[in-house]
């Protein structure tokens, strides 16, 4: 493929990655920012979202329903269910160990094992697809100069699907919604107050325990929502949580702890660079270079690209 369309295609793919990643990472960032704990099980909440989406979609499909209807119901129901599971886990486990950073890591690794095994035993080891509500291939045009004038043509293999574009739009809408909640509503104000100073928030009568459970559930719910969006592109599988966890972890740190705009910008950076670097190098080498770049960014800007205060 010619260079121009190739770069454009890689950017489009990068944009889809960015969309899904930013939702997942914003979820982790909320938990990180407000509660100051590393949730290792975040990727498993993502996985649960995808698996539930499959279940809901195939149940609706089994009753003779429209696949699009199943998908829409999953889009609403799966995040709610996953969010509730997370909130319960927070109330029964994390709150009882007082959100101690290190013990939280062990406890969430434990949760990760539990969720993976339960999914394996009930849902099984297969990767299962969910049908997209709409999915048409769009061939994209490109312009080249021939015979001294610009001409439009359709390069071989240059295209995308309507669903992928839909994912980008949906993610943007949800992110705006999260921003609105955080910046313009009372619950957002309470969350920000808790983030800034937990003790002061307590003193002002904010039910910090309930706020934490809500935030933990909200973070997990966002991950699940991202997973429902991605499951028509990538299938639901009980081990699918590892990659989103690592990537969103990176995004949160690069973006600067607890900074939502920073997180989204970092998702854009990571998602796009992953796609674009692959244009110039052989695939695995591109991964190595992208990985080292992330490390070096942090080495020379430990507070993250968009963060202002030192971490911890």
């Amino acid at each position: 493929m010619e260079f121009g369309p190739y770069l454009m295609l890689a950017s489009l793919e990068g944009a889809v990655t960015t969309a899904v990643l930013s939702l997942t990472a914003v979820g982790l960032s909320l938990v990180f920012g407000v509660m100051r704990v590393v949730n290792v099980a975040h990727g498993e909440f993502f996985m649960l979202g995808a698996v539930l989406a499959w279940w809901i979609a195939s149940a609706i499909g089994g009753m003779g329903g429209n696949p699009a209807l199943g998908f829409v119901i999953a889009l609403v129901l799966a995040p709610l269910v996953v969010g509730s599971i997370a909130a319960v886990a927070d109330l029964t486990i994390l709150s009882r160990i007082d959100y101690d950073p290190e013990r939280t890591i062990v406890a969430t690794i434990g949760l990760l094992y539990i969720m993976q095994q339960v999914t394996l035993m009930t849902y099984g080891p297969d990767a299962r697809p969910v049908e997209a509500p709409f999915n048409a291939r769009i061939a994209l045009p490109w312009v080249e100069f021939a015979d001294g004038r610009p001409q439009i043509y359709w390069p071989w293999g240059f295209g995308t699907t309507t669903y992928k574009l839909g994912v980008i739009v949906a993610a943007a809408i949800v992110l705006l919604g999260v921003w609105f909640v955080m910046a313009r509503t009372r619950i957002g104000l309470i969350m920000r107050a808790t983030q800034l100073d937990r003790d002061m928030a307590l003193a002002f009568g904010i039910p910090v325990g309930r706020v934490y459970a809500f935030v933990f559930g909200l973070g997990a719910g966002l991950a699940a929502l991202a997973a429902v969006l991605v499951v028509p592109i990538q299938q639901a599988h009980y081990l699918m949580g590892g990659d989103p966890l690592l990537l969103s972890f990176i995004v949160v740190i690069i973006g600067g702890l607890g900074s939502l705009p920073g997180t989204v910008l970092a998702a854009l950076l990571i998602g796009m660079s992953d796609g674009i670097i692959s244009v110039f190098f052989s695939p695995t080498l591109a991964k190595i270079i992208a990985t080292l770049l992330v490390a070096l960014v942090l080495v020379f800007r430990p507070q993250g690209l968009f963060g202002t205060r030192a971490t911890r």
């Binding site: 493929m1 295609l9 793919e13 293999g157 990659d243 692959s278 244009v279 695939p283 695995t284």
Partner: peptide, 16 residues
Amino acid sequence: AIPPTETSFTRYFPKI
């Protein structure tokens, strides 16, 4: 050659 644990592939196909 596709790196292990890769979950999306379209960006490698233009190399065909």
